[in-house]
Each structure stands twice: as structure tokens, then as C-alpha cells.
Design a protein around this nucleic acid. Sequence first.
DNA 1: CATGAATGAGTATTCATTCAT
DNA 2: TATGAATGAATACTCATTCAT
Lengths: 212, 212, 212, 212
Amino acid sequence: MTDKSKEAAGGDSRRPEIFHVAARLFHEKGFAQTSMSDISAALGLTKAGLYHHILSKEQLLLAIFNYGLDLLEREVVQPVAEISDPEEKLRRLIQKHIQLILQKRFHEITVILHENRTLHGKSLDQINQRKKKYIRFLENILADIARKNPRGKIQPKLGAFALLGMINWLYQWYNPRGPVSQDELTEQFTELFLRGYGTGGAASPSSPRAAR
Amino acid sequence: MTDKSKEAAGGDSRRPEIFHVAARLFHEKGFAQTSMSDISAALGLTKAGLYHHILSKEQLLLAIFNYGLDLLEREVVQPVAEISDPEEKLRRLIQKHIQLILQKRFHEITVILHENRTLHGKSLDQINQRKKKYIRFLENILADIARKNPRGKIQPKLGAFALLGMINWLYQWYNPRGPVSQDELTEQFTELFLRGYGTGGAASPSSPRAAR
Amino acid sequence: MTDKSKEAAGGDSRRPEIFHVAARLFHEKGFAQTSMSDISAALGLTKAGLYHHILSKEQLLLAIFNYGLDLLEREVVQPVAEISDPEEKLRRLIQKHIQLILQKRFHEITVILHENRTLHGKSLDQINQRKKKYIRFLENILADIARKNPRGKIQPKLGAFALLGMINWLYQWYNPRGPVSQDELTEQFTELFLRGYGTGGAASPSSPRAAR
Amino acid sequence: MTDKSKEAAGGDSRRPEIFHVAARLFHEKGFAQTSMSDISAALGLTKAGLYHHILSKEQLLLAIFNYGLDLLEREVVQPVAEISDPEEKLRRLIQKHIQLILQKRFHEITVILHENRTLHGKSLDQINQRKKKYIRFLENILADIARKNPRGKIQPKLGAFALLGMINWLYQWYNPRGPVSQDELTEQFTELFLRGYGTGGAASPSSPRAAR
DNA sequence: CATGAATGAGTATTCATTCAT
DNA sequence: TATGAATGAATACTCATTCAT
């Protein structure tokens, strides 16, 4: 509220730009290999100028983490939560999660995935809690499906981590300008996971369009 | 014989120990956040003493990468290559790859998975070639299965990366002292992927025992 | 304006002081034996503070070289170039060159003479070109004299290097507070070289006064 | 006399080779930039092996200095001392000194000229005394000439340093494979200096042959 | 004689951060 | 807001030298 509002979101219009540029650099070179000089230069600021907007390098990383997790909640969790059918929920979650990783604020998400061991103490705890919340959200969907469909033998927890592994690993290899389109990718990953988990193998009516 | 023996494998009995300790530290703190002082202290050496055995921090990382990829070839590729039935090949690869990540030289493998953007130039090229060789090995198995079993609709390339994502992501969450045993994990991941990829869902005769 | 102003000349008022102090230390102890710590301490700065003004030790040396060669051009070449009579040109060059070595920015010039093998690559090429330009300037004067005065049998090139050796060697032995005054030195070196090269031995009207 | 005779010359046949190789490296890269590793590698020894022959890097440099000054005395001073005519003495000294610098043990002599500020304390004093002895030897010759030939007005001390400057500077620029032969160089430098100093300008009967 | 292993002190350089202006 | 100057602590790496074997 006061002028010292570096931590609060209010009144600093350059902060989203700073987060995004920093996230891009953290993604490209790694957090430890990116200097505050790199970031300020990429922003057209001096080092001291950058410090007018942020408190420290670690707080900057924390802000990026929270920004990325905000996106995850807004772009994946919220739309999915509004759906009632569990299988349809899962289909949509896969589609939206892939979409998030591949298109929206790619760098912020990648930093979350890669700079796992970088945060410490309270910051780390806070982030881990938000991550766990998402995992439980996914686990619950899988448990609902399993209840309706006793054919499957996969534990929801293992299914959840398998699915997250499949999707999160994308940042290590998937090239959006390569031969596999995002729609194709989404369709095949959905098919692979749903059939593997023991849910109806046929493609659902909600055929994946990369809804934007 | 000369000082150059740092590059050759011969006659430096402390090198394996150095690799393992360094790999553990790189895994725990990250490559960039681990100082040569950390490594030498963990080895009970001075910094200069450590440099008697290695050429540079980057060469040390490269050596660890190659050591880990040697393990992958010896412990996963070679045993699997001797099998003839494609589906049996895949089952064994999943089992052996999980085993490698969870038990054998855990740190070396984790460093390979995590410190992707750290190497540069020729070292990076060399490592990437070895990685691609493994991916092609897995793709070929999947293609063989698809040929025998036209029911599946998953492209071998996407299947390969999905499987690698599932398994490699383990290092981010799996706790060997947690409630899920390694056998259980192996069984469920095998079931999930094989059924999802479109191969016979019934458990095969080679029920997974974490063969040691 | 940006951090890049290290390379440009503008707006860093401490740079001349830094050059001079560094040149003094390089002269006294040699480039390799002078540490950046020595230089920063002599300037009343920390090491990191020194690096705020310069890019590297090698760039610092290069800057000193160029500064010294600037002096040579301003204090020797330009005044001499305005004279028309070749013999008078030579007398003035000897006087001015001795003056430069013994009085003006002694250290900068000495570093140029002594730290010959220290620069590398492009920096070395650039400096060598500037040096060669001066040698050709002197050679041309000697060639002009030889044309007018066919008595002499000394090749201009050998004459030039002999003269440069005589004068540049001064930094190895001449003590300004010793029994030989700078005027006396100038007079005798002029006499020795002109008579030896085969030009009129009588003292010229421009009797050497160490003009300041 | 005992086995500890590292300092004495006796009983270590590899020492001359070591001196020469070290002198070459000191000349090429400078004393401070040459590591004991460089030297031992160039000799095909280990570092510790090198230390069986020498006491320290500084003692090694001192030994090279003394070796070079031994050469100067043997190859220049002794032959010249046997001549009686002063002018002939001077001619021969010029010829022999140039010869020493350009052919015989080039590196040892160059190190003496260049690594002036490197020695300290007693070693420096000892070397400086030997150097001064040579300068006085040359000064005496010039004084003898001046006594016979009152035409000259150059002080012997200044003449001596001028001549040493001309000749010693050769190591900075003269290329033995260039267009100027060593005989030509010797002849022209002799002519230049003798005429300049005020001694008979005509070439003497002892025309310079690069006596080997 | 020779060596592999080791070291204490030092080197140039970088970095996140601060502060007077 | 912004900056130029500055810093304390750290970083990867090197070096001359020693010593048990």
C-alpha cells in the first residue's frame, strides 16, 4: 500500500515484464548462471534500477514461481474444476496442461519445473504446498474415475505422477516447430494415458482442439 | 604415464570416488551451486589436490555424464538387446531403466537428467549423440511392437518420449523409503504404458522382480 | 551511458589515474608480477571497485600501450612532422624522443618498451602497426637525409633501429638525478648519431634545450 | 663435492640442457609466465624430477644469468682483451657482442637483457656487479681511444651505453632470416658507431667475417 | 634418480547487493 | 525513479614446492 510495495503487486507496472524477461533468462541459462546484470541489461535498466522493482534475486525467482502457479490454477485447475464428468475432467486437464507448457508463458512454467532445488526455507515450503495441491487435484480426478471403473488397476497416485512425468518432460524435447503438431501430441498422450489407466479407449467427443 | 593421464582412464584409482562424490553434490545442490571447494572438502582433499585428478569442472561433469551413459548401456541396453520378443524387450527395458534410476548410481543418472543445459560445444554434442542413440533404441522396439500389433495408434516417437518422461520424472518425486515399493512401481508403470500403447494388457510371464 | 562505457573514453574520470598507477606498477614489478590486488590497493580501491572501471588486466595493458603511443605521436611525431629540413627533423626527433622517455609519462613508455611479448592476438597486431608506423616515419627521415647527402653508407633501416636502440635503452640505465644532465645526454647522442650516420657533425642552430 | 652438489657444477650432466631449455622458454614466454610444469614437460621430466636438478625457479634463473655472463666473458671479453690496439679492440668487441646475441646461446643472453627486474637481493647484486664489470671494460676501451684521438667529444660512459643500446636492442627486432645479413649488420653498426664516436671512419682491415 | 600425490598461497575475475546523489 | 561507483565474499583455477615411496 505504501511506497515500499515492492512485494505487493500494486503500483509497479514494470513487474510483469521483469518477471517474464527474468523467466526467459532463467530458462535459457539456468538460475545460477543468470546474473542480475544479465537481467537488467535485457530490460534496458541498470543493475541498481532493477533493484528498485525487486528485493533480491531469490525473491524474483519466488515471484516467478508464484506467477507460474497462478497461471496453472487459472488456466488448468479452474476450467477443469467446472466440469462434472471425471473422465472429461481428465481429458481437459491433459489438454490444458500441455497447452500451458507449450504455449502460455512457457518460460515461467519451465523455471518451475527445472529450478526445483534452488529455493530454500519458507519459500520452498510455500511453493511445495501449491504444487502438492495440484497433484492432489489430479489424484482426486483419477480416484473418481477408478471408483466408477473398477477395471483399472493403477493407483491414482502413481497414475498422477506418470501423467505429470509424461507432460512435464515435454520441455526437455518437444519442438513446436517440429513434425508433431500440438493437437496430435495432445490426442496421442490423452489416448495413451486414458487407455493405460483403464478408461474408455475410444476418443471422446471432446476431440482436442487447441482452444485458445 | 605423464601428467596427461588425467584424460586417459588408466592408473588413477581415486577417479571413480571423485566422480561419485561430485555427482552426489551436483545432484543435491546443482552443478552451478556446487563449488570445487565443496567437492574437494567432501573428498578430504584441498582444491589443488582435486585438480591433480581432473582437468576442470566442466570436464568433471562430462566424465560423470559419460559414466552414467556407460551404465545405461551396460545395465539397460545390453541385457535388453539380447532378448528377441519385442514386447518382452519393452517390459525388460522399463524394469531395467527404473532400476537404474532408483538404485544404481542414482546421482550420476540424475545429473544427466537435470544438468541438460550445462554442457557446451563439443561435449554437449557428444552427450546428445549418446542420448539419441538410446532414444532410437527404444523407438525401434516400439516400432517392432506396432508392426506386430496394428491395433495401437501411438507413434513410436511419442510413445518413447512419454515413457521416458514417466520414468525419468521419478527422480523428482519418488521416495524409495515411501509406501510404494519398487516392484509395485515397476509393475504399475509397465501395465500403464503397455496397455496405453496398445499391447496385451495381461501381465507377462516375466513378472517384475527387481532382479539384482 | 550503459555499462559499456568502460570501452569508450567518455565519462570515467578515474581512468587516467588508473592507467598511470598501473603503468607505474607494471614498470616497477613487471606486468605478470603485478596483481590486480596491487593495482587496486595502490588506487585505494577494492579489486571489484577497480573492475568497475576496466574490463580486464589485458585490456588495461592495451589501454596503457595506446596511451603511450598517443603521447609519442603528439609529443614527437607531430612537432617533427611540421619541420621541413630533414636533418633538422632528425635532431628534433632525437630530442623529443629522449624527452618523452625521460620526463613525460615515463612509466607508460617504459611499459611499451618492456612488455613486448605480453599482448596477444588482435591487441598485439594493433600495437605493432602503430609501432611500425613510427619506425617508418623515422626511416623516411633518414632516407631523405641520405638522398641529399650521398656520403653516408648506412641503410636507413639499420640507422633507424640503431637510433631507437640507443634511445630506448636509456630506460635500462639512465638516472635523471645522476651526473649527466638530460641536455648533455641529448647533445651527445645527437652528435654521435648524426656524425655516425654521415650528416654534418657540427652542432646545429637548434641547440638542444630540454624544452618543457 | 658431496651428493648435494645441486649448486655446484659437478656431476650433473643434464644441467646445461636444463638451462638451455629453461632459457628458451623464459625468452619465449617470459620468466613469470613460464611454469615449472612447462619446463619439466619440455625436458620430458616430471615436475619433481626437475627439482632433483635445481633448487628453485629463482636459482634456475640465476644460473642462466651466470651462464650467459660466462659466455660473454669467454666469447667477447677474453678475445678482445688479448688485442692491444684500442680501435681494433672496439671493432672486435662490436663484432663479437653482435655475434653472441645473434648466434650463440641466444636465449640465455636475451633472458639477461629482458628479465632485469626479476632477481632480488643478493642474486641481483651479484649479477649487477658482473654487468658493471663489462660496462667498465667497454668504457676503458673508449677512454683509451679518446685519449689517442682528441677529436671526439663523446664521453666514454655515454658512448658505452649508446653502443650497448644499439646492440642489445637487436633482440627486439633483428630477424636472422631477414634481408640484412649478420656481416652487413656488423659492418654498418661498426661504421656508424666508430664514425660517430670520432674514430677513423674508413673500414678497418679486420673486415667482419662472422668468425665461428 | 624419479614419481604421483598433495598443498598453501595466490591469481584474475564475477556477483548480488548497497548507497550517495 | 534512476544511476555510477563501490564492495565483501566467492569462484574456478594455477603455481612453486614438498615428500613418501
